[in-house]
Design a protein around this nucleic acid. Structure first.
Length: 423
RNA sequence: GCGCGUGUAGCUCAGCUGGUAGUAGCGCCAGAUUGUGGUUCUGGAUGUCGAGGGUUCGAAUCCCUCCACGCGCCCCA
Protein backbone atom coordinates (compact mmCIF):
# COMPACT_ATOMS: atom_id res chain seq x y z
CA UNK A 1 0.00 0.00 0.00
CA UNK A 2 1.21 3.47 -0.86
CA UNK A 3 1.65 5.77 2.10
CA UNK A 4 2.20 9.47 2.54
CA UNK A 5 5.87 10.17 2.00
CA UNK A 6 8.27 10.84 4.83
CA UNK A 7 7.83 14.15 6.53
CA UNK A 8 4.38 14.77 5.05
CA UNK A 9 1.09 13.98 6.71
CA UNK A 10 -2.66 14.07 6.38
CA UNK A 11 -4.62 16.40 8.59
CA UNK A 12 -7.95 14.75 9.22
CA UNK A 13 -11.10 15.86 10.94
CA UNK A 14 -11.59 16.78 13.69
CA UNK A 15 -7.98 18.06 13.89
CA UNK A 16 -8.49 19.98 10.65
CA UNK A 17 -11.01 22.15 12.52
CA UNK A 18 -8.13 23.45 14.62
CA UNK A 19 -6.31 24.49 11.48
CA UNK A 20 -9.40 26.28 10.23
CA UNK A 21 -9.76 27.97 13.58
CA UNK A 22 -6.16 29.18 13.44
CA UNK A 23 -6.46 30.37 9.87
CA UNK A 24 -9.70 32.23 10.30
CA UNK A 25 -8.40 33.89 13.48
CA UNK A 26 -5.33 34.93 11.50
CA UNK A 27 -7.39 36.41 8.71
CA UNK A 28 -9.49 38.38 11.16
CA UNK A 29 -6.49 39.80 12.98
CA UNK A 30 -4.73 40.67 9.73
CA UNK A 31 -7.79 42.45 8.48
CA UNK A 32 -7.82 44.45 11.70
CA UNK A 33 -4.24 45.59 11.03
CA UNK A 34 -5.00 46.25 7.34
CA UNK A 35 -2.78 43.41 6.15
CA UNK A 36 -4.00 41.69 3.00
CA UNK A 37 -3.35 38.28 1.63
CA UNK A 38 -0.78 37.58 -1.03
CA UNK A 39 -0.57 34.21 -2.73
CA UNK A 40 2.69 33.44 -4.45
CA UNK A 41 3.61 30.29 -6.36
CA UNK A 42 4.70 27.23 -4.44
CA UNK A 43 7.72 26.81 -6.70
CA UNK A 44 10.10 29.41 -8.02
CA UNK A 45 13.40 29.65 -9.80
CA UNK A 46 16.08 28.24 -7.57
CA UNK A 47 18.10 31.42 -7.91
CA UNK A 48 15.46 33.36 -5.99
CA UNK A 49 16.08 31.39 -2.82
CA UNK A 50 19.80 31.00 -3.37
CA UNK A 51 20.19 34.76 -3.60
CA UNK A 52 17.47 35.71 -1.17
CA UNK A 53 17.94 33.29 1.67
CA UNK A 54 21.70 32.97 1.18
CA UNK A 55 23.93 30.40 -0.48
CA UNK A 56 25.63 29.44 2.75
CA UNK A 57 22.54 28.86 4.83
CA UNK A 58 21.54 25.32 5.70
CA UNK A 59 18.27 25.82 3.92
CA UNK A 60 19.89 26.53 0.59
CA UNK A 61 22.92 24.29 0.91
CA UNK A 62 21.14 21.11 1.89
CA UNK A 63 17.41 21.38 2.50
CA UNK A 64 15.77 22.45 -0.74
CA UNK A 65 13.66 20.32 -3.02
CA UNK A 66 15.18 21.26 -6.34
CA UNK A 67 14.85 19.81 -9.81
CA UNK A 68 15.54 20.75 -13.37
CA UNK A 69 12.55 21.59 -15.50
CA UNK A 70 12.33 20.37 -19.10
CA UNK A 71 13.79 23.58 -20.46
CA UNK A 72 16.75 23.29 -18.13
CA UNK A 73 15.61 25.88 -15.58
CA UNK A 74 16.37 24.97 -12.01
CA UNK A 75 13.18 25.00 -9.97
CA UNK A 76 12.74 24.78 -6.20
CA UNK A 77 9.76 24.22 -3.93
CA UNK A 78 9.68 27.26 -1.69
CA UNK A 79 11.45 26.69 1.65
CA UNK A 80 10.11 29.99 2.97
CA UNK A 81 8.04 32.81 1.56
CA UNK A 82 9.69 36.15 2.20
CA UNK A 83 11.89 35.99 -0.90
CA UNK A 84 8.83 35.25 -3.04
CA UNK A 85 6.88 38.12 -1.54
CA UNK A 86 9.70 40.55 -2.23
CA UNK A 87 10.03 39.16 -5.74
CA UNK A 88 6.32 39.79 -6.32
CA UNK A 89 6.61 43.26 -4.82
CA UNK A 90 9.35 44.18 -7.22
CA UNK A 91 7.88 42.38 -10.22
CA UNK A 92 4.54 44.14 -9.89
CA UNK A 93 6.10 47.46 -8.90
CA UNK A 94 4.07 47.65 -5.74
CA UNK A 95 6.39 50.46 -4.63
CA UNK A 96 4.55 52.65 -7.15
CA UNK A 97 1.25 52.14 -5.40
CA UNK A 98 0.64 54.60 -2.56
CA UNK A 99 1.12 53.47 1.00
CA UNK A 100 3.10 50.76 2.66
CA UNK A 101 2.47 47.22 1.51
CA UNK A 102 1.06 45.18 4.34
CA UNK A 103 0.79 41.57 3.25
CA UNK A 104 0.16 38.21 4.83
CA UNK A 105 0.19 34.63 3.64
CA UNK A 106 -0.71 31.16 4.78
CA UNK A 107 0.61 28.12 3.02
CA UNK A 108 2.92 25.17 2.71
CA UNK A 109 6.72 25.35 2.65
CA UNK A 110 9.15 22.54 1.92
CA UNK A 111 12.48 21.64 3.48
CA UNK A 112 14.23 18.33 3.27
CA UNK A 113 15.21 17.85 6.89
CA UNK A 114 15.02 14.91 9.23
CA UNK A 115 11.41 14.91 10.43
CA UNK A 116 10.67 14.94 14.12
CA UNK A 117 8.08 16.35 16.43
CA UNK A 118 7.18 19.83 15.20
CA UNK A 119 9.30 19.50 12.09
CA UNK A 120 7.99 18.26 8.79
CA UNK A 121 9.21 18.32 5.22
CA UNK A 122 6.00 19.92 4.14
CA UNK A 123 4.91 22.34 6.79
CA UNK A 124 2.73 25.39 6.83
CA UNK A 125 3.69 28.92 7.69
CA UNK A 126 1.56 31.88 8.56
CA UNK A 127 3.50 35.02 7.82
CA UNK A 128 3.23 38.73 7.28
CA UNK A 129 5.46 41.36 5.75
CA UNK A 130 5.35 45.13 5.85
CA UNK A 131 7.35 46.52 2.96
CA UNK A 132 8.39 50.04 2.13
CA UNK A 133 9.55 51.55 5.37
CA UNK A 134 12.61 51.44 7.58
CA UNK A 135 10.75 53.02 10.45
CA UNK A 136 11.11 51.31 13.83
CA UNK A 137 7.42 51.99 14.34
CA UNK A 138 6.77 49.32 11.73
CA UNK A 139 8.96 46.86 13.59
CA UNK A 140 6.76 47.28 16.62
CA UNK A 141 3.62 46.97 14.55
CA UNK A 142 4.73 43.74 12.94
CA UNK A 143 5.73 42.24 16.27
CA UNK A 144 2.43 43.30 17.77
CA UNK A 145 0.58 41.71 14.86
CA UNK A 146 2.44 38.44 15.28
CA UNK A 147 1.66 38.27 18.98
CA UNK A 148 -1.94 39.21 18.41
CA UNK A 149 -2.33 36.31 15.99
CA UNK A 150 -0.86 33.91 18.52
CA UNK A 151 -3.11 35.26 21.21
CA UNK A 152 -6.29 35.10 19.14
CA UNK A 153 -5.48 31.54 18.16
CA UNK A 154 -5.32 30.59 21.81
CA UNK A 155 -1.58 30.42 22.49
CA UNK A 156 -0.89 30.90 26.18
CA UNK A 157 2.31 32.32 27.64
CA UNK A 158 4.28 33.18 24.53
CA UNK A 159 7.78 34.43 25.24
CA UNK A 160 9.17 37.15 22.98
CA UNK A 161 12.91 37.30 22.39
CA UNK A 162 14.30 40.43 20.78
CA UNK A 163 17.62 41.35 19.29
CA UNK A 164 19.30 43.50 16.70
CA UNK A 165 21.83 42.00 14.33
CA UNK A 166 22.99 45.34 12.99
CA UNK A 167 23.50 46.24 9.36
CA UNK A 168 26.15 45.64 6.77
CA UNK A 169 28.21 48.42 8.35
CA UNK A 170 28.38 47.16 11.90
CA UNK A 171 27.75 43.43 11.79
CA UNK A 172 31.02 42.50 10.02
CA UNK A 173 32.94 44.32 12.73
CA UNK A 174 31.18 42.29 15.35
CA UNK A 175 31.75 39.01 13.55
CA UNK A 176 35.40 39.86 13.25
CA UNK A 177 35.68 40.62 16.96
CA UNK A 178 33.81 37.44 17.81
CA UNK A 179 36.03 35.36 15.59
CA UNK A 180 39.16 36.75 17.20
CA UNK A 181 37.89 36.21 20.71
CA UNK A 182 36.85 32.64 19.89
CA UNK A 183 40.37 31.77 18.78
CA UNK A 184 41.45 32.29 22.40
CA UNK A 185 38.69 30.36 24.13
CA UNK A 186 37.42 27.75 21.72
CA UNK A 187 39.81 25.15 23.12
CA UNK A 188 37.68 25.01 26.25
CA UNK A 189 34.41 24.59 24.36
CA UNK A 190 32.47 21.63 22.99
CA UNK A 191 33.39 19.95 19.72
CA UNK A 192 30.60 21.63 17.83
CA UNK A 193 31.61 25.06 19.00
CA UNK A 194 35.22 24.47 18.03
CA UNK A 195 34.00 23.76 14.54
CA UNK A 196 31.53 26.65 14.49
CA UNK A 197 34.22 29.06 15.71
CA UNK A 198 35.75 28.78 12.26
CA UNK A 199 32.78 28.03 10.02
CA UNK A 200 30.03 30.18 11.48
CA UNK A 201 31.00 32.04 14.62
CA UNK A 202 27.50 33.47 15.14
CA UNK A 203 26.20 29.96 15.67
CA UNK A 204 28.40 29.55 18.74
CA UNK A 205 26.06 31.98 20.46
CA UNK A 206 23.22 29.49 20.04
CA UNK A 207 25.06 26.59 21.66
CA UNK A 208 23.02 24.83 24.33
CA UNK A 209 25.77 22.82 26.02
CA UNK A 210 25.62 23.86 29.70
CA UNK A 211 29.38 23.83 30.21
CA UNK A 212 29.84 26.36 27.44
CA UNK A 213 27.45 28.93 28.80
CA UNK A 214 29.92 30.81 30.96
CA UNK A 215 32.27 31.25 28.08
CA UNK A 216 29.47 32.34 25.79
CA UNK A 217 28.38 34.90 28.35
CA UNK A 218 31.88 36.35 28.25
CA UNK A 219 31.88 36.74 24.47
CA UNK A 220 31.31 40.12 22.87
CA UNK A 221 27.68 41.15 22.36
CA UNK A 222 26.36 42.36 19.04
CA UNK A 223 24.56 45.10 20.89
CA UNK A 224 27.88 46.66 21.88
CA UNK A 225 28.91 46.82 18.26
CA UNK A 226 25.82 48.39 16.76
CA UNK A 227 26.52 51.54 14.80
CA UNK A 228 24.79 54.75 15.82
CA UNK A 229 21.79 54.46 13.46
CA UNK A 230 21.23 50.79 14.32
CA UNK A 231 21.45 51.44 18.05
CA UNK A 232 18.98 54.26 17.76
CA UNK A 233 16.62 52.17 15.68
CA UNK A 234 16.73 49.41 18.27
CA UNK A 235 16.03 51.78 21.15
CA UNK A 236 13.05 53.20 19.32
CA UNK A 237 11.62 49.75 18.60
CA UNK A 238 11.84 48.93 22.29
CA UNK A 239 10.07 52.15 23.16
CA UNK A 240 7.23 51.40 20.79
CA UNK A 241 6.88 47.89 22.16
CA UNK A 242 6.67 49.20 25.68
CA UNK A 243 4.05 51.72 24.59
CA UNK A 244 2.01 48.78 23.34
CA UNK A 245 2.37 46.92 26.60
CA UNK A 246 4.40 44.15 25.01
CA UNK A 247 6.87 42.31 27.21
CA UNK A 248 10.11 41.16 25.67
CA UNK A 249 13.43 39.75 26.63
CA UNK A 250 16.59 41.05 25.01
CA UNK A 251 18.53 38.06 23.79
CA UNK A 252 21.73 39.34 22.22
CA UNK A 253 22.67 35.78 21.34
CA UNK A 254 19.64 35.43 19.12
CA UNK A 255 21.01 34.87 15.65
CA UNK A 256 18.73 33.75 12.92
CA UNK A 257 19.54 31.32 10.19
CA UNK A 258 18.67 33.42 7.19
CA UNK A 259 21.28 35.72 5.73
CA UNK A 260 18.95 38.54 4.81
CA UNK A 261 18.17 39.78 8.29
CA UNK A 262 19.27 43.25 9.34
CA UNK A 263 18.64 45.17 12.54
CA UNK A 264 15.62 43.85 14.42
CA UNK A 265 15.24 40.11 14.78
CA UNK A 266 12.78 38.35 17.04
CA UNK A 267 11.53 34.96 17.99
CA UNK A 268 8.70 33.58 20.08
CA UNK A 269 9.22 30.40 22.00
CA UNK A 270 6.69 28.23 23.69
CA UNK A 271 7.14 25.47 26.24
CA UNK A 272 5.95 21.92 25.55
CA UNK A 273 6.96 21.93 21.93
CA UNK A 274 9.96 19.70 22.48
CA UNK A 275 13.26 20.55 20.87
CA UNK A 276 11.46 22.69 18.30
CA UNK A 277 10.32 25.27 20.81
CA UNK A 278 10.40 28.16 18.38
CA UNK A 279 6.90 28.91 17.21
CA UNK A 280 7.61 32.14 15.38
CA UNK A 281 10.63 33.89 13.91
CA UNK A 282 11.10 37.11 12.09
CA UNK A 283 13.14 40.16 11.41
CA UNK A 284 13.95 43.12 9.24
CA UNK A 285 15.48 42.67 5.79
CA UNK A 286 16.38 46.08 4.43
CA UNK A 287 18.85 44.73 1.89
CA UNK A 288 16.91 41.78 0.56
CA UNK A 289 15.53 43.45 -2.57
CA UNK A 290 18.98 44.60 -3.63
CA UNK A 291 20.44 41.15 -3.14
CA UNK A 292 17.75 39.87 -5.47
CA UNK A 293 19.06 42.27 -8.06
CA UNK A 294 16.43 44.94 -7.68
CA UNK A 295 17.21 48.56 -8.38
CA UNK A 296 14.14 49.41 -6.36
CA UNK A 297 14.69 49.49 -2.62
CA UNK A 298 12.21 47.45 -0.64
CA UNK A 299 13.09 47.67 3.04
CA UNK A 300 10.76 45.63 5.18
CA UNK A 301 10.15 43.47 8.16
CA UNK A 302 8.16 40.33 8.60
CA UNK A 303 7.72 37.12 10.50
CA UNK A 304 6.54 33.62 10.00
CA UNK A 305 4.72 31.37 12.39
CA UNK A 306 5.06 27.62 12.17
CA UNK A 307 1.42 26.68 11.79
CA UNK A 308 2.07 23.05 12.69
CA UNK A 309 3.74 24.18 15.90
CA UNK A 310 1.05 26.73 16.59
CA UNK A 311 -1.59 24.02 16.35
CA UNK A 312 0.52 21.83 18.61
CA UNK A 313 0.75 24.62 21.17
CA UNK A 314 -3.02 25.03 21.44
CA UNK A 315 -4.34 21.51 21.02
CA UNK A 316 -4.18 20.87 24.75
CA UNK A 317 -6.91 23.39 25.45
CA UNK A 318 -8.55 24.05 22.09
CA UNK A 319 -10.36 20.98 20.90
CA UNK A 320 -11.06 20.24 17.27
CA UNK A 321 -13.97 18.04 18.31
CA UNK A 322 -15.63 21.03 19.93
CA UNK A 323 -14.96 23.37 17.01
CA UNK A 324 -16.35 20.86 14.53
CA UNK A 325 -19.30 19.76 16.59
CA UNK A 326 -22.52 19.06 14.74
CA UNK A 327 -25.39 21.30 15.85
CA UNK A 328 -28.41 19.34 14.75
CA UNK A 329 -29.00 15.71 13.89
CA UNK A 330 -32.36 15.71 12.17
CA UNK A 331 -34.41 12.55 12.50
CA UNK A 332 -37.41 12.21 10.23
CA UNK A 333 -39.80 9.30 10.22
CA UNK A 334 -41.86 8.49 7.20
CA UNK A 335 -41.73 9.80 3.69
CA UNK A 336 -43.72 13.03 4.21
CA UNK A 337 -41.58 13.86 7.24
CA UNK A 338 -38.38 13.21 5.29
CA UNK A 339 -39.32 15.72 2.62
CA UNK A 340 -40.43 18.21 5.20
CA UNK A 341 -37.17 17.66 7.05
CA UNK A 342 -35.08 18.26 3.94
CA UNK A 343 -36.60 21.70 3.56
CA UNK A 344 -36.18 22.41 7.26
CA UNK A 345 -32.51 21.40 7.02
CA UNK A 346 -31.99 23.91 4.21
CA UNK A 347 -33.47 26.68 6.30
CA UNK A 348 -31.50 25.84 9.40
CA UNK A 349 -28.25 25.67 7.43
CA UNK A 350 -28.97 29.06 5.92
CA UNK A 351 -29.43 30.26 9.46
CA UNK A 352 -25.91 29.14 10.26
CA UNK A 353 -26.45 25.78 11.94
CA UNK A 354 -24.74 22.59 10.87
CA UNK A 355 -27.37 19.97 10.17
CA UNK A 356 -27.11 16.34 9.26
CA UNK A 357 -30.20 14.57 8.03
CA UNK A 358 -30.43 11.09 9.46
CA UNK A 359 -30.27 8.31 6.95
CA UNK A 360 -31.96 6.03 9.44
CA UNK A 361 -35.61 6.39 10.23
CA UNK A 362 -35.61 4.16 13.28
CA UNK A 363 -35.55 6.59 16.16
CA UNK A 364 -33.48 4.39 18.40
CA UNK A 365 -30.79 3.84 15.80
CA UNK A 366 -30.84 7.47 14.82
CA UNK A 367 -30.48 8.59 18.43
CA UNK A 368 -27.50 6.32 18.81
CA UNK A 369 -25.95 7.91 15.77
CA UNK A 370 -26.70 11.41 17.04
CA UNK A 371 -24.93 10.50 20.23
CA UNK A 372 -21.90 9.03 18.51
CA UNK A 373 -21.58 12.05 16.26
CA UNK A 374 -21.57 14.25 19.34
CA UNK A 375 -24.47 16.34 18.03
CA UNK A 376 -25.65 19.15 20.29
CA UNK A 377 -29.28 18.49 19.44
CA UNK A 378 -31.42 15.78 18.01
CA UNK A 379 -34.40 17.18 16.17
CA UNK A 380 -37.28 14.75 15.76
CA UNK A 381 -39.92 15.04 13.13
CA UNK A 382 -42.61 12.40 12.83
CA UNK A 383 -46.32 12.14 12.23
CA UNK A 384 -47.13 13.48 15.71
CA UNK A 385 -45.04 16.60 15.20
CA UNK A 386 -46.34 17.26 11.74
CA UNK A 387 -49.92 16.88 12.96
CA UNK A 388 -49.26 19.29 15.85
CA UNK A 389 -47.13 21.65 13.79
CA UNK A 390 -44.19 21.44 16.18
CA UNK A 391 -40.66 20.11 16.33
CA UNK A 392 -39.21 17.98 19.10
CA UNK A 393 -35.78 19.36 19.98
CA UNK A 394 -33.71 17.24 22.31
CA UNK A 395 -30.61 18.60 23.99
CA UNK A 396 -28.22 15.68 23.90
CA UNK A 397 -26.10 16.85 26.80
CA UNK A 398 -28.94 17.41 29.27
CA UNK A 399 -31.37 14.87 27.80
CA UNK A 400 -34.14 17.43 28.00
CA UNK A 401 -36.62 17.70 25.18
CA UNK A 402 -39.12 20.36 24.25
CA UNK A 403 -41.76 20.84 21.63
CA UNK A 404 -41.13 24.02 19.71
CA UNK A 405 -42.84 25.93 16.97
CA UNK A 406 -40.84 26.84 13.88
CA UNK A 407 -40.07 30.30 15.29
CA UNK A 408 -39.07 28.98 18.68
CA UNK A 409 -36.83 26.47 16.99
CA UNK A 410 -34.94 29.13 15.05
CA UNK A 411 -34.56 31.19 18.18
CA UNK A 412 -33.25 28.27 20.19
CA UNK A 413 -30.69 27.39 17.55
CA UNK A 414 -29.53 30.93 16.85
CA UNK A 415 -28.92 31.49 20.53
CA UNK A 416 -26.72 28.47 20.39
CA UNK A 417 -24.97 29.74 17.28
CA UNK A 418 -23.86 32.92 19.00
CA UNK A 419 -22.00 30.90 21.54
CA UNK A 420 -20.42 28.74 18.90
CA UNK A 421 -19.22 31.60 16.77
CA UNK A 422 -17.58 33.44 19.60
CA UNK A 423 -15.28 30.57 20.18
C1' G B 1 22.65 13.77 7.14
C1' C B 2 24.29 11.40 12.27
C1' G B 3 23.09 8.83 17.13
C1' C B 4 19.56 6.27 20.44
C1' G B 5 14.71 4.09 20.80
C1' U B 6 10.02 2.12 19.10
C1' G B 7 6.76 -0.55 15.35
C1' U B 8 1.48 -6.75 17.69
C1' A B 9 -6.45 -5.83 15.93
C1' G B 10 -9.43 1.09 14.33
C1' C B 11 -6.87 2.99 19.22
C1' U B 12 -3.94 1.78 23.92
C1' C B 13 -1.24 -2.34 24.85
C1' A B 14 0.04 -7.94 26.96
C1' G B 15 2.80 -11.84 24.83
C1' C B 16 8.97 -14.16 30.27
C1' U B 17 15.01 -16.79 28.14
C1' G B 18 12.36 -18.70 19.90
C1' G B 19 7.19 -23.39 19.64
C1' U B 20 3.20 -21.15 15.86
C1' A B 21 -1.20 -14.28 18.78
C1' G B 22 -4.76 -12.07 23.58
C1' U B 23 -11.96 -14.35 27.44
C1' A B 24 -7.27 -7.67 27.53
C1' G B 25 -9.33 -2.42 27.76
C1' C B 26 -11.62 1.20 24.56
C1' G B 27 -13.87 1.37 19.80
C1' C B 28 -16.81 -1.09 15.83
C1' C B 29 -21.13 -4.35 14.19
C1' A B 30 -25.71 -7.06 15.65
C1' G B 31 -29.48 -8.06 19.33
C1' A B 32 -32.47 -7.34 24.59
C1' U B 33 -41.54 -6.38 21.67
C1' U B 34 -41.02 -1.97 16.17
C1' G B 35 -41.05 7.15 18.46
C1' U B 36 -35.57 8.39 21.85
C1' G B 37 -28.98 8.06 22.77
C1' G B 38 -25.13 8.26 26.50
C1' U B 39 -24.75 3.64 31.93
C1' U B 40 -26.13 -2.22 31.65
C1' C B 41 -26.51 -7.25 29.44
C1' U B 42 -25.76 -10.85 25.29
C1' G B 43 -23.48 -12.21 20.79
C1' G B 44 -19.97 -11.08 16.71
C1' A B 45 -16.08 -9.35 13.34
C1' U B 46 -11.07 -7.75 12.74
C1' G B 47 -4.62 -8.89 12.57
C1' U B 48 0.00 -11.26 5.86
C1' C B 49 2.64 -9.52 14.69
C1' G B 50 5.76 -2.31 9.85
C1' A B 51 8.16 -4.57 4.93
C1' G B 52 11.77 -7.83 2.77
C1' G B 53 15.59 -11.33 3.53
C1' G B 54 18.47 -14.71 6.84
C1' U B 55 19.44 -18.34 11.07
C1' U B 56 16.33 -22.57 12.87
C1' C B 57 12.66 -28.58 12.70
C1' G B 58 10.02 -24.06 14.19
C1' A B 59 10.44 -16.62 14.87
C1' A B 60 5.99 -11.58 16.83
C1' U B 61 10.26 -13.20 19.73
C1' C B 62 17.50 -13.87 17.29
C1' C B 63 20.48 -11.44 12.92
C1' C B 64 20.66 -8.09 8.44
C1' U B 65 18.46 -4.41 5.19
C1' C B 66 14.65 -1.04 4.30
C1' C B 67 10.39 1.97 5.80
C1' A B 68 7.62 4.82 9.37
C1' C B 69 7.32 7.23 13.96
C1' G B 70 9.52 9.20 18.65
C1' C B 71 13.74 11.57 21.23
C1' G B 72 18.40 14.01 20.70
C1' C B 73 22.31 16.39 17.35
C1' C B 74 22.60 19.74 13.18
C1' C B 75 19.30 23.55 11.92
C1' C B 76 14.89 25.93 11.88
C1' A B 77 8.87 27.38 11.64
Amino acid sequence: MIKAIRGTRDILPPASALWNHVESATREVCRGFNYHEIRTPIFEETALFARGVGEDTDIVSKEMYTWEDRDGTSITLRPENTASVIRAYIEHRLDQIPGLKRLYYIGPMFRRERPQKGRYRQFSQIGAECIGSESPLIDAEVIELSLEILSRCGVQNPHLLLNSVGCKECRPKFVQALRERLQDVKGQMCQDCQRRADTNPLRVLDCKVPEDQNIIDSLPSILEYLCEPCAKHFETVKGHLEARGIDYEIRSRLVRGLDYYTRTTFEVTHGALGAQNSILGGGRYDGLAESLGSRVAAPGIGFSIGEDRLVMAIEEHVKGEELARLDVFLIAMGDPALKHAAVLAQELRRGGASVELSADQKVKRAMETANKLGARYALILGDNEIAAGVYALKNMATATQESLTREQLSAALSRRQDVVHHD
